[in-house]
Design a protein around this nucleic acid. Structure first.
Lengths: 335, 335
DNA sequence: CTGAAAGCGCTAACAT
DNA sequence: ATGTTAGCGCTTTCAG
C-alpha cells in the first residue's frame, strides 16, 4: 500500500521501467499500443512521478530560491508575483524566503537553499557588500540581484532608475515654486537609499537651490521612521513647504504624522513619495508619487535567470535598469 | 571541480561515508578525534549536504505546501507569515502557491506538490467541495484547511467565527439605531461568504428587523464588486443607512465608491467591514471593523499539521475556531 | 567505534 | 521499439 513507483507501473503494463520513463517524459519512440497500456497503468495506480528521485539523477530541481528582505513591504510581494508567474510558465517552482533585513538570516537561508539544490537564485540582499554570497558563487549557481546591487560579485542585476525617479520628483516640486524641500532618506548604505538622495540633490543643484542640512533626514525605510522624522520636520523653526519621502512605508508613516500634527497636506505642505502605495488614493488629497514597474521588475529578473540556467550562458553580467514614472495626483500644490 | 559530496569528505578525512553521515546527523558514537577530522574536511571542502539525496532515502522532504486563493488579498500573506515562522522554527520549508481562486489551477498545483513529495499541506481551497483533494488523501499526506472547510474529506480545520463576527458587526449597527442595514456578501457557495450572511441575518432576526432583499447583495470578495454594489445601493429609492461589507477587498471598493458618489461616510451612511484593512485608519472617519487574528490562524494551522506529520497521529480530525474581535473606530454613527 | 553494502525512484547510456 | 544496468548522494542495517 505504498506510493506507487515507476516499477509498479512497469509491472502492471508488462514493460520495463525504461519504457515507462520514456512515456512519462514524452521522449517518443514508443509504440502506440505500448504507450496506451502504460498510460492506463499510470491512471489505474494513480501514479505520480517522484520529482525528488528525478532531481537526484538529473542534478537539477526546477526550483529557484527567492530572497527578499521584508514581506511586509508590499513592494516585494508584487515583485515576487512577477517572478512566479514567469517561473510557473517555464515549469519552475519557487522557495520564497524573507530575511527581515538580517544578514545573518540571509546567510542561513542561503545555506538551506544550497542544500536543497536550487537551480538559481533571485535576491534582494540585506547586505549589499555581498560576502555572504561566496558559497553561492562557489556552487556556480546563477544569481540575479533585484533592486539592490551586490558589490563583491558580478551578477546580473535589475534595478529601477532611483536617481532618475528622485530627480523627477524633486524637480516637480521645484517647478511648482518650492524652495524649502525636505527629504526623508533611506539608509545611506543601501543603493536605493543613497541613489534617491543623489537624485534629490542633483535636482536642487541644477536649479540652484542650496541643500539645507535640517531638511535632509535619514530614516530606515520603515513606517515608524517616516512618522518620527515628519514630526521632526514640523518642529523646525522654518518648516519645509514640501517633503519627498524615499519609500512607500515611510510615506505611510508621514501620512500618519501629518494627520496627528494636523499639518495640512497639499495646503501647508506639499508631498511626493517614492513608490506608489495603496493608501495613495485614500488620503486627501491623493498622493503624487514616483511609481515603479514592480511586476515587470520580477519578470525581467526571472527571464535573466532563466537564460543563465538553461543556456548555461556565461557571458558578461548585465545590468537592466527600468524607468520610474511620475504619477501626478494632488498632493503637490503651487507655492 | 564538482560540488563536493559526502564521499569527498570521507576520503579527505580517511573514514567511510557512514561515519561522515553520523557526524553530519549528530548521531554520536564517533570518537572525538575522528569527528574533528571530519569537521575539518567539511570545512575545507565547503561541503554542504545534499537535501535531495537525503530526501530520497528518508522519504521525507521537510517541506510543506501552502495553497492560497489570492495573493493580492493581504489577509493571506499575513496568515502565511504565521505559518512560515512556526515552520522555520521546526526546520520546515514551504512551497507557497496561489490559485487565483481557480479550481483547475489548484488541481495542477496539488499534483506538482505531490510530485515534490511535500510532507504536509495547508490549504485555503478554491473549491470547498474538495474532490480535487482525492489524490492528496490517497497519498496519505496530512492536510490542514484554513479559513475554508473541505466538504468531502475530514481534515483538520482552523477557522474564525464568521457567524459570530458578522453577528457582532450587525448588532453594533442595530444598537446604534440603524434599521436599513445593507450587506455586501461574499459568494454564497463559500463558507466565509455564507456564514457571514448568516450572522447578519441572525442579528436582524434577533432584533426583529426584517431582511430586505434589496439590501442583500452578493459580491465576489474582490475590490471591484464592492465598488459596484455600493453604487447599486446608492441608486435605491430608499438608501440603507448602514453597510456591512463581508471582506477587506470589497471594503476597499466600497470606500472608493463612497468617495466617487460623495456619499458621506459616517454621516450619511455608517459602515463596518469584516477584516481590518490598511486603509482603515486613513479614510475619514476611520473604519470600524471586525478583525481576525490572522497570524495566529497560520500558527495554529502549522502546529496542527506538525503534530500529524511527526506523531503520525491519526486521531479524529479537529476543528479549531478562533474568535474575531470588533474594533470600534468611527465609521458607525448613531442613527 | 567504524566500515561495507544495500537500496531510495528515477534517467540515460548501451544493448538487443 | 524495448530492455538492462549503472549510477545520482545519502541513510541505515549489519558486521566486524
Amino acid at each position: 500500500m505504498h506510493k506507487p513507483t515507476i516499477e509498479d507501473v512497469a509491472k502492471r503494463a508488462n514493460v520495463s521501467i525504461a519504457t515507462v520513463s520514456r512515456v512519462i517524459n514524452r521522449q517518443g519512440g514508443v509504440r502506440q499500443k505500448t504507450e496506451a497500456r502504460i498510460l492506463a497503468a499510470i491512471e489505474e495506480l494513480n501514479y505520480i512521478p517522484n520529482a525528488v528521485a528525478r532531481s537526484m539523477v538529473k542534478k537539477t530541481t526546477n526550483t529557484i530560491g527567492i530572497i527578499i528582505p521584508d514581506v511586509n513591504n508590499p513592494f516585494f510581494p508584487t515583485v515576487v508575483s512577477g517572478i512566479e508567474q514567469k517561473a510557473r510558465e517555464k515549469g519552475y517552482f519557487t522557495f520564497l524566503c524573507n530575511t527581515n533585513e538580517s544578514a545573518d538570516t540571509e546567510r542561513e537561508l542561503l545555506t538551506i537553499l544550497l542544500e536543497r539544490s536550487v537551480d538559481g537564485l533571485i535576491i534582494t540582499t540585506a547586505d549589499e557588500a555581498g560576502d555572504q554570497l561566496q558559497t553561492v558563487m562557489d556552487a556556480k549557481i546563477p544569481v540575479v540581484a533585484v533592486d539592490r546591487a551586490i558589490k563583491k560579485f558580478e551578477v546580473d542585476t535589475v534595478l529601477v532608475g532611483n536617481v532618475d525617479g528622485a530627480y523627477q520628483a524633486t524637480r516637480h516640486l521645484i517647478l511648482q515654486g518650492h524652495k524649502r524641500i525636505a527629504i526623508i532618506c533611506g539608509p545611506q548604505n543601501t543603493t536605493p537609499g543613497y541613489e534617491r538622495f543623489v537624485g534629490y540633490k542633483r535636482a536642487l543643484d541644477d536649479y540652484g537651490i542650496p541643500v539645507v542640512q535640517e531638511y535632509v533626514l535619514e530614516g530606515d525605510f520603515k513606517e515608524e521612521s517616516g512618522r518620527r522624522l515628519t514630526k521632526q520636520l514640523y518642529q523646525l523653526p522654518e518648516r519645509p513647504t514640501a517633503i519627498f519621502s524615499s519609500n512607500n512605508l515611510m510615506t505611510v508613516g508621514c501620512m500618519k504624522a501629518l494627520y496627528e500634527l494636523d499639518w495640512k497636506l497639499g495646503e501647508e505642505v506639499s508631498f511626493i513619495g517614492f513608490d506608489d502605495v495603496d493608501i495613495a488614493t485614500f488620503v486627501n488629497p491623493p498622493l503624487t508619487v514616483v511609481s515603479r514597474p514592480m511586476r515587470k521588475l520580477g519578470e525581467v529578473a526571472f527571464e535573466m535567470l532563466y537564460e543563465r540556467m538553461t543556456e548555461g550562458w556565461d557571458g558578461a553580467k548585465r545590468h537592466y535598469v527600468l524607468s520610474p514614472e511620475l504619477k501626478i495626483r494632488q498632493s503637490c500644490r503651487l507655492k
